[in-house]
Design a protein around this nucleic acid. Structure first.
Length: 404
RNA sequence: GCGUGGGUGGCGGAGCGGUCAAUCGCACCUGACUGUAAAUCAGGCGCCCUAGCGGCUACGGGGGUUCGAAUCCCUCCCCACGCACCA
C-alpha cells in the first residue's frame, strides 16, 4: 500500500526473504511478483477457531504483504478434515465439529483476521464444498497422484514407518486433500510454516497430476514463545493478537533477551538494518536490552491496537513496574461486608483462589492494602463506604474495594 | 483375539506396604536483586481451620486383604507395545 514503483523490487525481496525459510520455485515466484500479474495466494485456516497468536500472525502478515502488492488472498478453511476427524490426532475421540460450530468459530476468527488481512478483498473458502463432493472414483484418481515412496519421504511418516509406529492410510490422504484444495482454488502460491513443507509440496504434485501449473510455495520461520520454547497455548508462552494493550505490552517485555531480534524480525516492520544495529548494540553493551524490548513492545502493540494505545501501554508499564506506582485503571469492586479479615477479603474479591493460597500470599509478603504490606493473616480490614481501598496481590494484581 | 507393560498433582516423570499431600524437572505464584513481567538467587505451589510436628480428601473406576495401600489381590475401563488375523 505504500510501495512506489521504484521500491517494488525491494518489496518483492522483502516478501521473498524476511522470515522466510524456503521458496520453491524462488526464481519463478520472483518473476511472477515483478510481472504485475495478480497472483492467487493460498493459506490454510484451522476451523477449530483458535486465537491467533503472534506465531500464526507471521504467516498472516506475510499474506498481507502479498495483498499490499495487489495479489489475491485465498483463505481455505479446513472444515472438511475437522468434520471427518484427523486420525493422527491421538485424542481422536474429541467431538468432531459440526458445520454450525465451524461457522461460529469462523465468525470469531474473522474478527481477528481482520486485524491483519484486508477481508474485503480476500476470498474465504471452505474445503468441504469440493472435498465432500468427490466420489470414490475421483478419490482413487487423486490417490494416483502420489506414490507410497513419495509419502514415506515425509519425515514424520518416515520416522514412524521405520520405528514401526502405525500410519493410518487416511493420513496419507491428508496431503492429497490439501493438494486438491490448491487445484480447486487455482492457487499460484501457497504459504505456510516450515513444518508444512510436505503438504505444500503435495499441492504442487497434485496440481501437476491434474495438468495444472504448479503453485510456488513459501514457508516461514516459526516464532518461539516468550520463553524460547515452541509457542503453544499449553506452555503459556503465547501472545495473542487480541490481548489487551497493557497485557500484550507486558508479555512482550517478558520475552527473553535472546529472542528480541527474532521478534523484531518476525512480528514487526522494523527494517532489518535497524534490527541488526539493535542486535549488535546489545552485544557491545551500547543498547540496553530493556530499551530494545520497549521498542519491540511498542511496535507490536501499535500494529494491533494503534499508536496511541501503544504509547499509553508503555507509560503504564513504566509507571507500574519501574516506578512501582498504581496502574491508571484499577478494577473496582464493591462488597457487602464492612469488616473482613484480609484472608477473606482476598478470597471474596478473587485476588486469591482459596484461603490457603491467600494465607501463603500474605505470608510471602505479597499483599498490600493502600500501599502498606500486610503480614499478619488475621489482620481485619475495615471496608470504607465512600473512598476505596487499594488492595494489591503480588506485583500485578490490583483492586479497588469499597462497601456496597 | 492372545500376551506384556502401564494409568500418580497443570504437564513430564519418581515412588512399588508405613515417616507420601507424595523425590525431581517444566510451567505457575511470592520475595530479593535489577535493566522489565528478562536473567539470577531464595521460598512456595490440594483443601479447611482454633495455622499446628492440626484435620480432611486425593495416586484411572469399583471391591477386597491388612493395624496400615499410590504401593498387595480381584474386577471393570482406558492407553502403549508385541504376537495373531490379513498370507
Amino acid at each position: 500500500m505504500k510501495s512506489s514503483r521504484k521500491s517494488k523490487a525491494n518489496d518483492v525481496e522483502e516478501i521473498l526473504t524476511r522470515g522466510v525459510t524456503e521458496v520453491i520455485d524462488r526464481e519463478h515466484l520472483r518473476k511472477a511478483l515483478l510481472s504485475g500479474k495478480k497472483l492467487r495466494v493460498k493459506l490454510g485456516i484451522d476451523p477449530t477457531g483458535p486465537r491467533i497468536h503472534l506465531g500464526r500472525a507471521v504467516l498472516l502478515r506475510k499474506l498481507r504483504a502479498f495483498q499490499d502488492l495487489g495479489h489475491r488472498v485465498v483463505l481455505i478453511v479446513g472444515d472438511f478434515t475437522a468434520q471427518i476427524g484427523d486420525p493422527s490426532d491421538k485424542l481422536a475421540k474429541r467431538p468432531l465439529l459440526t458445520p454450525a460450530q465451524v461457522a461460529e468459530n469462523m465468525k470469531n476468527y474473522k474478527k481477528q483476521l481482520g486485524k491483519i488481512i484486508d477481508l474485503k478483498t480476500a476470498e474465504v473458502k471452505y474445503n468441504s464444498s469440493w472435498l465432500s463432493r468427490l466420489n470414490f472414483t475421483q478419490v482413487t484418481r487423486l490417490a494416483e497422484s502420489f506414490s507410497v515412496q513419495q509419502m514415506l519421504a515425509r519425515r514424520n511418516f518416515k520416522e514412524r514407518y521405520e520405528k514401526g509406529i502405525d500410519i493410518s492410510l487416511r493420513e496419507f490422504l491428508y496431503p492429497l486433500m490439501q493438494g486438491y484444495d490448491s487445484v480447486a482454488v487455482k492457487a499460484d502460491v501457497e504459504i505456510g510454516g516450515f513444518d508444512q513443507l510436505f503438504n505444500l509440496m503435495a499441492g504442487r504434485a497434485v496440481q501437476k497430476y491434474y495438468g495444472k501449473k504448479e503453485q510456488d510455495i513459501l514457508t516461514c520461520e516459526m516464532l518461539e514463545g516468550t520463553d524460547g520454547r515452541k509457542m503453544s497455548t499449553s506452555w503459556g508462552n503465547v501472545i495473542n493478537i487480541t490481548d489487551e494493550p497493557n497485557d500484550m505490552f507486558g508479555k512482550l517485555m517478558s520475552v527473553r533477551d535472546g529472542l528480541i531480534g527474532r521478534y523484531l524480525l518476525l512480528t514487526t516492520d522494523v527494517s532489518r538494518e535497524e534490527i541488526n544495529a539493535i542486535e549488535s548494540g546489545m552485544q557491545t553493551g551500547k543498547v540496553n536490552p530493556r530499551d530494545a524490548k520497549l521498542r519491540l513492545a511498542r511496535e507490536v502493540v501499535a500494529i494491533y491496537h494503534g499508536e496511541k494505545s501503544a504509547s499509553a501501554a508503555e507509560t503504564e508499564f513504566l509507571n507500574v513496574f519501574q516506578k512501582g506506582r498504581l496502574p491508571a485503571n484499577v478494577r473496582e469492586e464493591k462488597i457487602q461486608a464492612s469488616r473482613l479479615s484480609i484472608v477473606d477479603l482476598l478470597v471474596q474479591t478473587r485476588l486469591a483462589a482459596s484461603k490457603s493460597s491467600a494465607f501463603r500470599l500474605i505470608q510471602q509478603g505479597g499483599v498490600k492494602v493502600d500501599g502498606e504490606k500486610i503480614s499478619d493473616p488475621k489482620t481485619v480490614i475495615v471496608i470504607p463506604g465512600k473512598t476505596a481501598l487499594v488492595v494489591q496481590a503480588g506485583k500485578r494484581d490490583f483492586l479497588k474495594v469499597s462497601r456496597r
